[in-house]
Computed example of a mutant assay.
Amino acid sequence: MSNLNPDEMAAYEASLKIARDNYSHDETIRKEGELKGKLEGKLEEKRETPIKLISINIPIEKIDEITGLPIEEIEKL
């Protein structure tokens, strides 16, 4: 790098900045995807319990009390 002239150094630094920006962008997207996947998994888990309770004929009011889900949401399941 010490042999680069000022224009070459500026071009090199600009390419480094672009590479770092791209890496940062990709990491942000990856982390957002992981978080979204975890949240979707949690929502799916949250739906499984009331479905199981419905299948064994537990009253909706009790399911609401146990899970904290609104009755309207439970009725949709």
Rank of each mutant, 00 (worst) to 15 (best):
I71V: 10
E45G: 07
M9T: 09
T28M: 14
K76P: 01
I51G: 05
I18T: 13
S55N: 14
L53W: 05
E44G: 01
A11T: 05
I63N: 02
A11L: 13
E32Y: 05
I18D: 13
E72V: 04
I71L: 07
L35D: 09
I63D: 01
G41R: 06
A11Y: 04
K52Q: 09
I74W: 06
K17A: 15
I71S: 07
K17P: 00
I51A: 10
K38Q: 10
L43K: 08
E45C: 04
K52D: 09
E27D: 12
L53F: 07
D26P: 01
N5R: 03
K38P: 00
K38S: 09
P50G: 07
R47L: 08
G37V: 00
M9Q: 11
L77G: 05
I54Y: 02
L16S: 03
E44L: 10
I71C: 01
D26I: 02
L53Y: 06
R20W: 08
L43F: 04
E73S: 08
G33R: 10
I58L: 10
S24T: 15
E40R: 07
Y23W: 12
E75M: 06
E73G: 00
L69S: 03
E34H: 04
E65V: 01
E48Y: 04
E65A: 11
I29W: 06
M9I: 04
I63H: 02
S24H: 15
R20G: 00
N57E: 15
L35G: 01
D21R: 14
E44Q: 10
T28N: 14
P59C: 11
N57A: 15
L16E: 12
E34R: 06
I56P: 05
L39P: 02
P50D: 08
L77C: 02
D21C: 04
M9R: 11
S55M: 09
T67N: 02
I66A: 05
E8R: 03
N57T: 11
I66F: 10
S2Q: 10
R30N: 06
E48G: 03
Y12E: 13
R30T: 11
E8F: 03
I74P: 00
R30K: 14
I29L: 13
K42H: 07
E34C: 02
I29T: 11
E72T: 03
I54C: 08
K31D: 13
K52P: 02
K76D: 06
I74V: 08
S55A: 12
G37R: 08
G33W: 03
I56E: 11
P6K: 11
S55I: 03
D64Q: 12
K62F: 01
E32W: 06
K36I: 05
R20Q: 15
N3L: 10
E61G: 11
L16D: 10
G68M: 02
E13L: 15
M9G: 01
K17D: 15
I56R: 12
G68D: 01
A19N: 11
K17Y: 13
N5Y: 04
S2G: 12
N22C: 09
I71W: 00
L77D: 01
L39F: 07
E44I: 07
I63R: 00
A19Q: 14
T28Q: 14
I60R: 01
E65Y: 11
E65I: 02
I18G: 03
G33M: 07
E44M: 10
E27S: 07
E34I: 13
L35M: 12
I58G: 00
L16Y: 02
